[in-house]
Design a binder for these strands. Sequence first.
DNA 1: CGCTATTTGTGCGTATGTATC
DNA 2: GGATACATACGCACAAATAGC
Lengths: 252, 252
Amino acid sequence: MKRSPSQAARPRYAVVAQTLIDDILSGRYAVGTALPTEHALCKQFDISRHTAREAIRRLQALGLVTRRAGVGTIVHTDHIAQRYMQVGDTVADLYQYAQDMAINVLDVSDIEADDDTATLLGCPEGQTWARLQGLRGMDPDALPMALTDVYIAQDYRGVLGDIEGSGLPIWSLIEARYGVIPSEVRQQITAVTLGHDDAVKLRATPGESALRITRHYLSDPTGTYEVAINLYPAGRFSYSNTLRIDPTAPLP
Amino acid sequence: MKRSPSQAARPRYAVVAQTLIDDILSGRYAVGTALPTEHALCKQFDISRHTAREAIRRLQALGLVTRRAGVGTIVHTDHIAQRYMQVGDTVADLYQYAQDMAINVLDVSDIEADDDTATLLGCPEGQTWARLQGLRGMDPDALPMALTDVYIAQDYRGVLGDIEGSGLPIWSLIEARYGVIPSEVRQQITAVTLGHDDAVKLRATPGESALRITRHYLSDPTGTYEVAINLYPAGRFSYSNTLRIDPTAPLP
DNA sequence: CGCTATTTGTGCGTATGTATC
DNA sequence: GGATACATACGCACAAATAGC
């Protein structure tokens, strides 16, 4: 298959996929109806079945179509834009959280990333990060709600002294001092079992269940620059949020 | 309905994929190292390159490996608990989730809401709801990922027969059949300890930690019409999403 | 009810392009 | 440049699921 040098080296399946996506979004293939069969696409675009399947696989990944043997490829929605807007996880909520759950610093240290830590932080092994451990709670005398481990890239360790008592999220302290804004925050929530040391610090029972929320703060070129791990014993906290319909989005 | 013998009906790529997953989890293929090349897998399992690629495609979808031409297939993580399963942000994610985690129905029944259930469902006591219990997983033979309890308002119980094998979220089945769209989805995530009955169904250990994700689907005038409770034993699943900073939000 | 046509799913063989070392 | 490994692309065959007669 000769391709003229001026022609962009775009895979054929990508061209076909984009064409189909455009057709779905423009209403040429209505929601609930079937897309052309693989065989039809082969003839229409003069491609092999393999290429047709690769193209449709992209539509599938976008949730635009569903496929079933014996039935066909059915258009399921004609808009890729998300219909649900996430609320309850906005910047304002994060500020509220930080103010309510002031941090009580237990320990500050420098660590050299070993194997596990490098994986967690997404950084080369041996790199040095600052680490802060503390308890979060509304009232210093009451049971703490969470055990917090925060890892901060070496460049921004200057915020360490500002954390306690500020009532501000750490990323906002970094922003204020260094002008670095997270372009993205990746959040992961898992269930874990409390180990002995963590349980003692939290005045909880070893073996008890706990919620672990890990947040990676990424800035655009440099990647991860802060990682916060919060450990909440079961019953002291539950994460909740609400998805709402985006009123501006078209209905299927 | 005919049920074929579980082993014979399994595609070859699924067998290969499961083997590779097991090998990664057991440490046979360490994080950061390369998986056998496609060519090696072909010889090792006596399969075609096409089948090998289909198997690796599954690992890729799970985020276990990354692939690059000229380099190879690199193991990204060996902690299935830290696998990134994107759920909850966009409609496409929810569809992807439902397709990957097909439901295996254990039980369907009608229940009359007692005190606790009425509170959970936000309905009057004594009201009748349909309840479906099932296991969610990618592979019927492997360990299930979650125990699912779904409560559906009496009016929409007609979707019950469509659930198994559809690979679609239940709320989207309700939408397709009855035209009811959730105006709001409330989601709550807590850590719990597995009880005996649930542990047995999940082939897990009683007393183990688990993640419980409860979703309330509300429509505008009628209120809650579906409640889904998913119970994930620790290590089998982790909830992850990405928060975007709202650039329009005022900073304190 | 079984039969058939249709459509996707699975699987194999082969060839060439592209990225990386 | 060469070697290696994945990416794309063509061909074919049969199986499984489904719909309609």
